[in-house]
Design a binder for these strands. Structure first.
Lengths: 185, 185
DNA sequence: AATATAATGAGACTCAAAGTTTCGAAATTG
DNA sequence: CAATTTCGAAACTTTGAGTCTCATTATATT
């Protein structure tokens, strides 16, 4: 019921192009910055046509979001997973915050684009926000009984990180320590 | 030393146009949404030339930021001031959060634009972020002794509000209550 | 093998809106 | 009156996202 449509006639989608596009998108954004990257530059460097890009993604931002989410998925650190299992908030933040900071500039621009595009916003939540938010909920579950209160704390913790990121203020280990302490006040 | 340059020759700046532009910018953004407003539409409706707009503001976003900051200044509620003086965090949040929510869509778009423009970002901090952040610092000063810890709490509180705003999640009285409770955990 | 279908890379094209430039008229100072 | 600066109006430039066209290629069906 999932693979049923694999049997369509016609030339199949090129995985080579797909992967090349995601790869190029990721590296161009990391090296040249979001602003310098264009749909053209991605397609060109990936040896693909712009048409191919727009056939599979609704926008330039969606490609970059996809590229970032892809890289993020393969980087589910052991320390992060350990922190989640043991419910260690500080360890979680110490693993999460540097990971976010590393792709910070790209994240900021994606969040920015998402403000102008509801569908991108939904995609952002689904691919980048929720995958990080859910583990935090689990960690806090044992600590904060009330669900509403817990949700506010989640917003406070990730909110602080994003707030700092968007305003060009430090997103570092010190923040991790202070946020962990804050949940324990 | 402040008014010394008032004695320049030539036609002086038209306060009528300045005010009309700020007024139009505010109302167009509130009524039609940030995306529908263009530099042309503002100038046209204000009975001004686009030239005039760009002579005094560096970008469309700067005009709207200015317009929002202006309206915000005139709306320093009594309840808000009372909350600050009495150091009542809940009262502060109950006055601040609805005020933010009221102009939420515009704020989101300004924050988004600011990600692409460092100067606008600095202006945003100066005109909208700091004027709200400083009072919160004062309120927390009596409650949280350590300056770093206090700063993290500031980021957590305003961060939570922005996070909710940017992700289309509720920014309401319940959040005010929960954030106030959070600082008291 | 022949045919229908759908994707491919390349590149021309459209479009919208930000920001710039030009212009003649109007408001100042001296 | 002369110099200076802003004014409103409107033409113009620029940029990049997204669309369209096309000849070509890979696959399924018959």
């Amino acid at each position: 019921m999932e693979q049923a449509e694999k049997r369509r006639p016609g030339r199949p989608r090129s995985d080579i192009s797909k992967n090349a596009i995601l790869d190029v998108a990721y590296w161009q954004v990391m090296e040249q910055g979001y602003g310098k990257v264009t749909a053209d530059s991605i397609a060109k460097a990936a040896g693909a046509g712009k048409q191919t890009l727009y056939r599979w993604w609704p926008s330039k931002a969606a490609v970059i979001l996809d590229a970032l989410a892809e890289k993020g998925r393969t980087r589910i650190d052991r320390p992060l997973e350990a922190a989640i299992r043991s419910g260690d908030l500080l360890a979680f933040l110490q693993a999460t915050i540097p990971a976010i900071a590393a792709i910070g500039p790209a994240l900021r621009h994606l969040m920015a684009e998402a403000q102008f595009d509801p569908k991108l916003r939904a995609l952002l939540r689904e691919r980048l926000i929720e995958p990080r938010r859910e583990p935090l909920r689990q960690i806090l579950a044992t600590r904060v009984a009330d669900a509403h209160q817990r949700e506010a704390l989640v917003a406070a913790i990730f909110g602080a990180i994003w707030y700092r990121l968007l305003l060009d203020e430090p997103v570092d280990e010190a923040l991790a320590v202070e946020l962990a302490a804050l949940a324990r006040i």
